[in-house]
Amino acid sequence: MKRDSDEKDLNRRDFLIRSARAGGFIAAAGLLGYRLHDDTGARGLSSDEERQAVLADYSVPGTSRKMSIVTGQDRVTSVRLGLEAIGGIESFIKRGDKVLIKVNAAFATAPALSATTDPRLLSEVVRLCLKAGASEVAVTDNPINDPQSCFALTGIGEAARSSGAKVIYPKQTFFRPVTLPGGNLIRKWPVLVAPFEGVGKVIGMAPVKDHHRSGASMTMKNWYGLFGGRRNIFHQNIHEFIMELAMLVKPTLVILDGITAMMTNGPTGGSLADLKQTNTLVVGTDQVAVDAFGATLLGKSVHDLPYIMKAEAAGAGTADFESLGPARVTAG
């Protein structure tokens, strides 16, 4: 008798425990189902995870109309003189600044072919930044050819490291979707933004090059190298795109290296016959003006390069570089 009732109690307790557990499971499943409910199938998409990024304005207040044109044969002395003529590197780079230099390392070609930023010029600029007190200088680009080969063969990688800068290679995780406010073309496009994190000053360094599609490739087009994805598509509307590039990136300084200009067969060139010694280097804070001057080195006018007028109309700078009163310096 007692054993029966004991057994019954045991069974009841067991049942109650199991009921509680079952009830708990049902409640948990129900709650989860309710929280995760999706009527339209539009939630839970992988594209939701990508947070958009925004690029800041890196120009130094009060320096917006500075430009210097240096005539000379040696890049190192020319850039030094050029920077001095617009107030010295100290007016731009302050102690403790993190500096990012966007070079042109698009192709895996030798420096002599002038399709990429000259490594000696880069070394000098890095050195000057560090001398001005920068805490860190980084060099980056998203090349068209394979990044490792590009940074190596152009000499840029070695130049950066030996002068104390670090090279940031374009890793896939470094790209974030970016939208240009008011832009038509740059909408949620993957851009290499990770190198910009924590950066206070941005310098763009580009050689003067002819370009089959856009007419010329100089400081404004240099920012194309920050874009990822299937960026070739922007060639379909190249001038409007370069205009939007100039609106998107507001650098501290741009340096246009016209010591050796690629006159034909740009942007890859490939033969020394494509080059001409134009012996001019420009430093400035207005990339539109700098490019407008650069056009003259290629024997073109601003009207041959529609993107310059578009950029001016969009307020990214002025095409009338003479109105800035550029300092003209001759290196010895």
Partner: peptide, 18 residues
């Protein structure tokens, strides 16, 4: 639920079965 983090509309029937 594991792959998307959502429970799409009609799949709530599964709760009844559970």
């Amino acid at each position: 639920v594991l792959t998307t983090g959502t429970l799409y509309s009609g799949l709530s029937w599964a709760l009844a079965v559970l």
